[in-house]
């Protein structure tokens, strides 16, 4: 398979481009989409299919639902995950409901694309890692790519999926570069990937915390601790089987999550592993998450509430050194 190097965000747009070329039902709309005759998407696919919108999130997402009901496959670029909250009903109580409540008579294939985790001084209202609040919503799928290749493959799969998909790309990864397969590239939903094998402890991380977990694993390897790093890639559906199988090999689980700890991806995974893999655990499960607070503007406070490599390393050491008392 031939590849080329591109950025994480470039890979996302490449997938949208390929899918729009492949299927004329794929539409693109949003506040920062098109709007100029020299926009490459407008030039390639025309202003009918590539439309800039006013600041009207409820209409943008609701229109995507309606266009999907009428046979199209819209992609809404919502820019930032928090802007979805302005249209919360449309995100969690409209498009995702229609297939089920119609008894399967209608489908709502649409993608909501949004950046998240703008932890670079964007303060309280633009920095949240709010994916946890969407992962328990039946009918909605949630993808959290951590590499350019996955960004491309998950976006392509999202567009071809017959359900509403929330595709969340991490702001801090935007310009990360990586090898991306040429042409058609699909990453299936609900299939975690083992980013690094290891026998001593299982580390699960998503999005921006994947490179953090890999860095921690490299640090730990120097001390002879081999961490297995798993990236679920989608959190709805969530591949708990791969995590459980890994825990059965390692006996230890450390969960890394940028989101606040309460009701997080890590909390869900901890519960699943505790219920189905209790017998395999040789130490308590430890979660390394954002602290339960909003993101403060000032840099020292922003850094304080976020997980980092040192926190991950320390958590792994505590788990590995666990001797029957508290971690």
């Amino acid at each position: 398979m031939s590849t080329h190097e591109t950025t994480y965000i470039g890979a996302v747009m490449e997938a949208i481009d390929l899918e729009m070329a492949r299927d004329e039902r794929v539409l693109l709309l949003g506040q920062s989409v098109g709007g100029r005759p020299d926009d490459p998407f407008v030039q390639r696919y025309g202003e009918n299919r590539v439309r800039v919108t006013p600041i009207s999130e409820t209409a943008e997402i609701g229109m995507a639902v309606g266009a999907a009901l009428a046979g199209m496959r819209p992609v809404v670029d919502a820019t930032m995950a928090e802007f979805l909250l302005v249209a919360m009903d449309q995100v969690v109580n409209e498009g995702n409901r229609f297939h089920h409540m119609s008894g399967g008579r209608v489908r709502v294939p649409m993608v909501l694309k949004a950046g998240y985790g703008f932890t670079a001084g964007w303060a309280g209202q633009h920095t949240g890692s709010i994916y946890g609040m969407f992962m328990g919503v039946p009918g909605l799928k949630v993808a959290l790519p951590s590499t350019p290749a996955d960004a491309k493959g998950l976006m392509a799969s999202a567009i071809r999926d017959d359900n509403p998909v929330l595709f969340l790309h991490h702001y801090l990864l935007t310009l990360d570069r990586g090898e991306v397969p040429d042409g058609e590239h699909l990453v299936p939903f609900g299939q975690a990937v083992i980013r690094r094998p290891g026998a001593d402890v299982t580390l699960v991380a998503t999005g921006w915390t994947v490179p953090m977990a890999l860095a921690a694993a490299a640090t730990l390897a120097a001390d002879g601790i081999e961490a297995e790093v798993i990236d679920p890639r989608t959190i709805a559906p969530l591949d708990t089987a791969t995590v459980l199988a890994s825990v059965r090999r390692t006996g230890r689980l450390v969960l890394v999550d940028q989101a606040t700890r309460h009701a997080s991806v890590s909390a869900v995974l901890a519960a699943e592993v505790a219920e189905a893999g209790f017998d395999a655990l040789r130490a308590p499960i430890v979660q390394v998450t954002g602290l339960d607070a909003g993101i403060a503007y000032s840099r020292p406070m922003e850094e304080h509430v976020l997980p980092d490599e040192a926190k991950v390393v320390a958590a792994v050491r505590r788990v590995v050194e666990y001797s029957g008392t508290r971690v």
Binding site: G121, W122, A123, G124, Q125, H126, A296, Y297, S298, M301
Partner: peptide
């Protein structure tokens, strides 16, 4: 004004 919590937008 906000003890560094808010920044430019808040």
């Amino acid at each position: 004004l906000c003890r560094g919590m808010g920044g430019s937008m808040h």
